[in-house]
């Protein structure tokens, strides 16, 4: 679930809008306390305007649907605790750092894809709509093209316009 926390952070929604708690079958009190605590903290955050985060939510959704994050979450324990296919354990912190980096990239790419869903767009337009730095858009877009998810549609003067390709 840290994936979701991370993504909510990236999207600006904030990780506080979700929680993961461990409650055992014997801990009725803890459950009740937790719900109370969560209600309080959510009250502080105020109501959530899903409309305003349309784009971000769609992007987060896309990331979660994407195979890469799913696989990575799948192998998490494998490689850090039980040992990977080479019989070595990957340092958990290192794995985490890599994972977060990938997650961020995936989220950025998802955002770009969402923007492209509205029609052909230039890199600068994408940066404007996603709030990402121009160069970041350029780099992520490139990866999308490589994976056959986006493509150059045409040049308008010296400005290329890109489109989303159906996966």
């Amino acid at each position: 679930m840290s994936v979701v926390e991370q993504l909510l952070d990236y999207s600006g929604i904030g990780r506080k809008r979700m929680a993961l708690r461990w409650v055992s079958a014997a801990e009725g009190q803890i459950f009740a306390d937790t719900v109370k605590e969560l209600t309080e903290s959510t009250k502080e955050l105020g109501p959530f305007d899903a409309q305003a985060y349309n784009l971000q939510l769609a992007a987060v959704e896309r990331v979660l649907q994407g195979p890469r994050v799913r696989w990575m979450t799948g192998v998490d324990l494998h490689v850090t605790e039980r040992g990977n296919v080479y019989g070595e354990k990957v340092d958990e912190q290192a794995f985490r750092a890599m994972f977060e980096q990938s997650l961020k990239e995936e989220y950025e790419k998802a955002l770009i894809l969402e923007v492209l869903g509205d029609g052909p767009s230039s890199v600068r337009e994408m940066a404007g709509k996603t709030g990402l730095p121009v160069y970041t858009v350029s780099l992520r877009l490139n990866d999308l093209e490589r994976r056959g998810l986006a493509d150059l549609q045409k040049f308008e003067g010296s400005t290329p316009r890109f489109v989303r390709l159906a996966a």
Binding site: A19, L20, R21, V23, T42, F48, Y53, L57, V60, E61
Partner: peptide, 14 residues
Amino acid sequence: IEGLKDGFDQVSVF
């Protein structure tokens, strides 16, 4: 995410 989209203000997993 579905939860948030549907209008919940918070989603938790226990």
